Amino acid sequence: MVAEEEEEKLEQISLAEWALHCHQLGTLHQIMDPFLREKIDPECFKTFTEIAKKCLSDKGSERPTMGDVLWYLELARQQQEANAVEEKMCLEMSDRTTSETFVTIDLGIGNSDPTPGVEFSELLAPVGR
């Protein structure tokens, strides 16, 4: 059982080191699940990776406090939500422009109404009240 735990700890350490290496190369987004890559706001991802990088610092004095971690995670959440709201608004706007309703106005041309304009007779021939 101890050997399995040590082996798992080595896999986790290697994964963290690999992630840090990819971050340095600017390729961290490539190791993310493609399904998630399309759903995470770039600013949220940047904030999240920066706090994760700080948590992995070799020196304990350089690691953030738990309060700092919570603050950065809250910031990342807000960035993600703001992006979701922005995307929703963009979708609604595109839906509106693609499904515009056209209104037909009857100008009375070719109308067989025997008394055209009677509706507005008071406007055309104002009578004192």
Rank of each mutant, 00 (worst) to 15 (best):
M1H: 07
M1Q: 10
V2Y: 06
A3W: 06
E6T: 04
E8Q: 13
S14L: 10
L15Q: 12
A16R: 05
E17D: 11
A19V: 03
A19C: 08
C22T: 01
H23T: 00
Q24A: 06
Q24E: 12
L25E: 01
G26F: 00
G26Q: 04
G26C: 03
T27P: 02
T27Y: 06
H29P: 00
Q30V: 01
Q30H: 05
Q30N: 11
Q30P: 02
M32Y: 00
M32F: 00
P34A: 08
P34K: 01
R37T: 00
K39V: 02
D41S: 00
D41A: 02
C44K: 00
C44Y: 03
K46R: 13
T47N: 10
T47Y: 05
T47V: 11
I51W: 08
A52T: 05
A52H: 01
A52L: 06
K53A: 05
L56T: 04
S57T: 07
S57K: 04
S57I: 04
D58I: 03
D58L: 13
K59M: 13
G60V: 14
E62A: 08
R63I: 04
P64H: 07
P64V: 02
M66Q: 01
M66I: 02
D68I: 04
D68T: 04
L70G: 13
L70K: 13
E74K: 15
L75M: 15
A76Y: 03
A76G: 12
A76K: 05
R77T: 12
Q78M: 14
Q78P: 14
Q78H: 14
A82Y: 03
N83E: 13
A84C: 11
V85W: 13
V85C: 09
E87M: 06
K88H: 15
K88Q: 10
L91T: 07
L91R: 10
M93P: 01
S94K: 13
D95E: 15
R96Q: 11
T97D: 08
T98F: 02
S99K: 11
S99A: 10
S99T: 10
T101N: 07
V103T: 06
T104D: 15
G110M: 09
G110W: 09
S112Q: 12
S112E: 11
D113I: 09
P114D: 02
P114R: 00
P116A: 07
P116S: 03
G117F: 08
V118G: 02
F120D: 12
S121M: 11
L123S: 08
L123Y: 11
L123H: 11
L124F: 05
V127E: 11
V127W: 12
V127S: 09
V127D: 08
G128A: 14
G128Q: 15
G128E: 15
